[in-house]
Amino acid sequence: MAFEQSSWERPDRGLEQAAEFGDSRAMMRLAHFFERRDPQRAQRWFQDAAEAGESDAMYRLAELLAGREADQALHWYRRAAEAGHLQAMYAMGTTCDDADERGGWLRHAAENGHADAKLELGRALRDRDLSQEAEHWLRAAAEDDGEQWIEPRDPAEIDAGLGPRHQACLELVTLLAAQGRIDEAGQWRDRAKRVLEWEANVNRAFYRRSATGTVVVTAVVATSVIPFVQALMSKAAEDAYGQARALVQRMLRRSPAQSEARSGATLLIADDPDAHITLCLWSDVSDEALRALASLNLDELTAQRPDRGRIRLVWNPADARWQIRGDQPDQ
């Protein structure tokens, strides 16, 4: 079910339940929900998701901490960058104290396709009189057709043409003109005008969409459903993966809310009251997760659960395994 952001008074209870169970994706949804409403609660969920291995959570947590807890912010920027988060690499390339480390991260971000990093690397090389290499990276930034850099911007900034492609075009105009390559400089000046118009249109559209967009979270709490795990374990090994996919699809089709979801993934919370097992699963669950689920031994799982209470199975994409969570039985 899709909800307008402005109409949400609280997040879906199923989403909160999955986050409490340890589902890092649900934690991220909650963190984004609270980001503007309650920054402290957002920080709590970003922190939990970061500690569960979500690189984007590490980066968003660093963004929240920047300016008030610089050391912690740098710690999480570095963790995210080391986990392969592109924006965090760029942040390390522009904020860390050590010049060599800063340069290394900037180049790493540029080589991995970050448009702003290409621009900044080109400028840094130009300032060191390395014109040929500077031109290479400025061209790479100017010709970048990705949209990873696009964010809602202040309208005044949009009109000023602060996107990396436009800036890179202007930097090339200056660099080429200084080398006497006047015709080429003129071509990049013309291109800068076209890029400015494109960046302004795309950013304005994104800004409007962000201001009025929707957050799509559908939570299905299914009790007394086909015991998902038991049904899966009963299948022959070679057929387990296909049965898993079919079961997920059948369960999701049962939910009337599913037909109302226009985009985004659906969260399924399947509860088997007899086996005291609860399974958190997203509709776009990876093949890797389903194969790992199919290989679980239900009897062994039940016998070796952390305690005598209910057990919860949650997929952790960071280390590609199913987490087993437990609680104490009712007294």
Rank of each mutant, 00 (worst) to 15 (best):
Q179G: 03
R204V: 04
A192S: 15
R204K: 07
R208Q: 09
A236T: 05
R208P: 02
A236G: 13
F228V: 09
R209Q: 15
I182P: 11
Q187H: 14
A178N: 15
E197P: 00
R189T: 07
Q230C: 03
V217W: 02
N203I: 15
A205I: 10
S224K: 06
A219F: 05
L232K: 00
F206M: 13
A185D: 08
E197Q: 13
T212C: 09
I226E: 05
V220D: 07
V216R: 05
A192M: 09
A192I: 02
P227T: 00
F228N: 03
A205S: 14
S210C: 08
V215P: 03
T212E: 11
A168E: 04
I226G: 06
V195D: 09
L170R: 14
K193C: 03
S234C: 01
A231F: 11
T212G: 07
L172R: 01
W198H: 15
D183L: 03
A185S: 13
A168W: 04
N203T: 15
E197W: 06
K235D: 08
C169R: 07
A237G: 03
A237I: 04
I182H: 11
A178V: 05
D183E: 15
L196W: 14
Q167T: 11
V195M: 06
F206T: 05
K193M: 08
Y207D: 15
G186E: 10
E197Y: 09
N203Q: 15
V229G: 07
I182W: 08
L172D: 07
V215H: 07
I226F: 02
L176G: 08
G186H: 12
R191Y: 15
K235Y: 01
V215Q: 11
T212V: 12
P227R: 00
S224D: 14
T174A: 15
N201A: 15
L175P: 14
D190H: 04
L232E: 01
A192L: 09
V195L: 10
R209F: 09
L232G: 06
F228L: 13
V195R: 11
M233Y: 00
A178T: 12
T174I: 11
A185H: 01
A236Y: 02
A192R: 09
A168G: 10
D183A: 14
D190M: 05
P227F: 00
W198N: 13
D183R: 11
A168L: 02
R209W: 14
T214F: 10
S210A: 12
D183S: 10
T212I: 12
R204F: 05
R208K: 02
A237E: 13
V195T: 13
V216W: 06
V221I: 12
T174R: 08
D190A: 14
G180T: 04
K193F: 07
A222S: 05
P227Q: 00
S224R: 08
W188R: 03
R204M: 09
Q230P: 00
D183F: 03
V195F: 12
V195H: 10
V217Q: 02
A231N: 12
V217L: 04
Q179L: 08
T174Y: 01
A200V: 07
V225R: 00
A205C: 05
R208G: 02
R208V: 10
G180S: 06
R189P: 00
V229Q: 01
E199M: 06
Y207G: 12
G180Y: 10
